[in-house]
Every structure is written in C-alpha cells, then in structure tokens.
C-alpha cells in the first residue's frame, strides 16, 4: 500500500509540473525553467517550515508565490524576444537555480538540532508531516486536492476569454497582437502562473520526501515537465494528466525491470510522438470522440 501511495505522490508532483509547463505552452512557448521554479518552491517552503517553524499551508503558499515572482522576473527579459531565446534562457535559469542551491548553506539549531540546507549535501530534515503526525494517505489527499483544484482551474480557463487569448497567441502571435492583445504581458502572466504551480509542486515534493538536493533539479526533470503537455497534447488539460500517468506511471514505474533503459525509452518516446503525433496523443480526434460520447449521454439524460 505504501508503495502505491508513493506512486500517487510522484504522479501528483509531476501532474502539477506538467500543468505549469502547459499554461505557457498554450501561448506557444517552451520553457525549461519549470524545474527551477519547482526547486525554489521546494527550498523556500522547506526553509519556512524547518528553520522558521511555520505551518505547512502558509509555507507552501509563500513558496509558490516566490516561484511565481521569479518566473515573472525571468519571463520579463526572455519573453520579449524570439521564442527560441526563451528555451536558452530558461535552461540557463534552471541551472543557475540548481547551482545556487548547490552552494547554499544556511543552517542553525532548532530544538537542539542543526538543520537547514547544507550545500552539496542537500536539505534534509524537512519533516513537517512526520513531526505533526500526518498519515501518508493524508499527504496523498493534500497533493491530489491541489491537483484537482489546478485541473479544474485549467479546465475552466478554456471556458473563458483568458484561455482563448492564450491559445490565440499560440496559434498566431502577429494576428493576436494586431487584434489588440498585448502578447508580451500575456506571456509573462502565463509564465508567472506556471511558476506558481511549479513552486507549489516543489513545496509538496520537499515535504513528502523530507529531503531535496540539487541533483533532483536537473534539466531532465525540466524536460519531463514540458514533455507531458506535448506528448499528451494541448487540446485539453486532460492530455497532460493522461501523459503523466502514461510516462511516470507506466514507462517509469511500471517498467522498473528495465532499469536505466527507461530513460532511453523516454527520449525515444518524445522523438516518436513528435514525428508521428506532433499534436500529441490526446489530439483533435480523441477529444472529438469523447465530446461526442458526452453529448450522446447528455441527450440520453434529457
């Protein structure tokens, strides 16, 4: 049972990471900074609960906001220029964040125990859940509540004008701007929202695993984050959800017996999907099928 709860937790972090990339991908921008925001959320909220003995909820909140602010600051220079520049800038940003935490030592004694980030050794002792008697299913519940809220918000986004604007930019930036949309600021806001979600994910991650270090926050994880929406397809938020379950649940967890071949498979999977299903697996026809099915059901109920 523990094992399955563990997988559920992992899936939860990855879904949120995928969502954070999804928002920006709607505008046609690929960001490899999500892992940097994730790291900021993890360290910031961890420092708050461990070194400042905050309650978990305000700590998660501040962690997410800190990541969002950072996203705003990165997005500002990077999004004003060509989309390709964003890829380069965000990959550099993620590495900067990783290296900063690699060098960050900030430890002092709390209740007779020295705790805090310890440079290359990482940040252990993020034991809020254990110290406060949370059961593992409660942690899973917390994570998946967040996932559910994020899913609903992103689904709702497609019902309102804000979502249509994001997609319009993704579809044709010039036409969108000439239709009166301030493309740059929309992208920056999208980046900041993505930062908040990634930061939240990072905070949850740090507290569930009790331990983070710079090795977690690699460009590979950043690639996972963008691959979920791209493999799943941008037609709807459920594509990302499905892709996380497919990639993390089946490819990475399910095929454990393959050992490190799985990461090789991950690279190959991306190449295959981009060649044969460039719009992602949950594409137009898939969605059409489902919505037709739902419409049928609706008619039957009426």
């Amino acid at each position: 049972m523990e094992y399955y709860f563990g997988i559920l937790q992992t899936l939860g972090f990855h879904v949120l990471l995928g969502y954070s990339a999804y928002i920006l991908l709607l505008t046609g921008q690929l960001s490899l900074a999500q892992v940097g925001f994730f790291a900021i959320g993890a360290y910031a909220s961890g420092i708050l609960t461990v070194l400042f003995e905050w309650h978990i909820f305000p700590a998660l909140f501040i962690g997410a906001i800190a990541a969002g602010c950072m996203a705003f600051m990165v997005g500002f220079p990077a999004l004003r220029i060509k989309g390709l520049m964003l890829v380069i800038a965000t990959i550099a940003f993620s590495e900067i964040v990783r290296l900063i935490f690699f060098n960050l030592r900030w430890r002092f004694e709390i209740n007779g125990l020295e705790v805090g980030p310890d440079g290359a050794q990482g940040f252990r002792e993020i034991r809020y859940f254990a110290a406060n008697g949370w059961e593992i299913y409660e942690i899973v519940w917390l994570i998946w509540t967040m996932v559910a809220v994020a899913t609903i918000l992103l689904w709702w986004l497609d019902q309102i004008k804000a979502g249509a604007i994001l997609r319009a930019i993704g579809s044709d930036e010039l036409a969108a701007e000439s239709s009166g949309i301030n493309v740059t600021s929309v992208k920056i806001v999208a980046m900041a929202c993505g930062g908040v979600i990634a930061g939240l994910s990072g905070g949850l991650y740090a507290h569930s695993t009790t331990y983070v270090d710079h090795n977690t926050f690699t460009v590979l994880l950043a690639t996972f984050a963008v691959s979920y929406p791209l493999v799943g397809g941008l037609k709807s938020v459920f594509g990302t959800l499905a892709a996380v379950i497919f990639i993390q649940g089946i490819l990475i967890e399910g095929l454990r017996f393959l050992g490190d071949y799985r990461t090789i498979l991950f690279g190959a999977l991306i190449i295959l999907v981009m060649n044969f299903k460039p719009k992602g697996i949950v594409d137009e026809n898939f969605v059409k099928g489902i919505s037709e099915y739902l419409r049928l059901n609706k008619k039957l109920i009426k």
């Binding site: 690639t223 691959s227 090789i264 999977l269 190449i271 981009m274």
Partner: peptide
C-alpha cells in the same frame, strides 16, 4: 523539432 531534439539529447 525543438522538443524532438531535446528528446535526442537525453537519448
């Protein structure tokens, strides 16, 4: 292509 080449990087 961008994403595929990132895939190839890790491959």
């Amino acid at each position: 292509s961008l994403m595929a080449s990132i895939g190839a990087l890790f491959l």
